[in-house]
Amino acid sequence: KVKIAGPGLGSGVRARVLQSFTVDSSKAGLAPLEVRVLGPRGLVEPVNVVDNGDGTHTVTYTPSQEGPYMVSVKYADEEIPRSPFKVKVL
Rank of each mutant, 00 (worst) to 15 (best):
K1Q: 09
K1W: 08
V2H: 04
K3M: 08
K3P: 02
K3Q: 09
I4V: 11
I4N: 02
G6N: 05
G6M: 05
P7V: 06
G8A: 03
G8E: 04
L9T: 04
L9N: 01
G10S: 08
G10Q: 07
G12I: 13
G12Y: 14
G12P: 09
R14F: 12
R14A: 10
R14I: 15
R16Y: 07
L18H: 08
L18T: 13
Q19A: 08
Q19C: 04
S20V: 13
S20A: 09
F21K: 01
F21D: 00
F21L: 04
V23A: 03
V23N: 00
D24Y: 06
D24C: 04
D24G: 01
D24Q: 04
S25H: 14
S25T: 14
S25L: 13
S26H: 08
S26M: 05
A28N: 04
A28V: 07
G29W: 05
G29S: 10
L30Y: 11
L30Q: 12
L30S: 12
A31G: 15
P32H: 15
P32L: 03
P32N: 13
L33V: 11
L33D: 02
L33S: 03
L33P: 11
L33Q: 03
E34V: 13
V35P: 03
R36F: 08
R36A: 12
V37F: 00
V37G: 00
L38P: 01
L38R: 13
L38V: 15
G39V: 00
G39T: 06
G39P: 02
P40H: 04
P40N: 04
G42H: 10
L43R: 12
L43A: 12
E45N: 06
E45I: 08
P46A: 12
V49S: 08
V50C: 11
D51F: 11
D51Y: 14
D51E: 12
D51G: 12
N52K: 13
N52I: 09
G53W: 09
G53V: 09
D54I: 05
G55W: 08
G55L: 11
G55V: 02
T56V: 12
T56E: 06
T56Y: 09
T56C: 11
T56W: 06
T58F: 14
V59H: 04
V59L: 02
V59M: 05
V59I: 07
T60H: 10
T60C: 08
Y61K: 00
T62G: 01
P63M: 01
S64H: 08
S64G: 09
S64V: 09
Q65S: 10
Q65T: 14
E66G: 10
E66N: 08
E66R: 06
G67M: 01
G67D: 00
G67C: 01
G67A: 03
P68A: 15
P68S: 15
P68V: 15
P68G: 14
Y69E: 01
M70D: 10
M70F: 13
S72A: 05
S72Q: 08
S72R: 11
V73H: 00
V73I: 12
Y75K: 03
E78W: 04
E78Q: 12
E79N: 12
I80C: 13
I80E: 02
P81Y: 05
P81F: 04
R82L: 11
R82V: 08
R82M: 15
R82H: 14
P84M: 02
F85Y: 10
F85Q: 05
K86D: 10
V87F: 14
V87Y: 05
V87W: 02
V87G: 02
V89F: 03
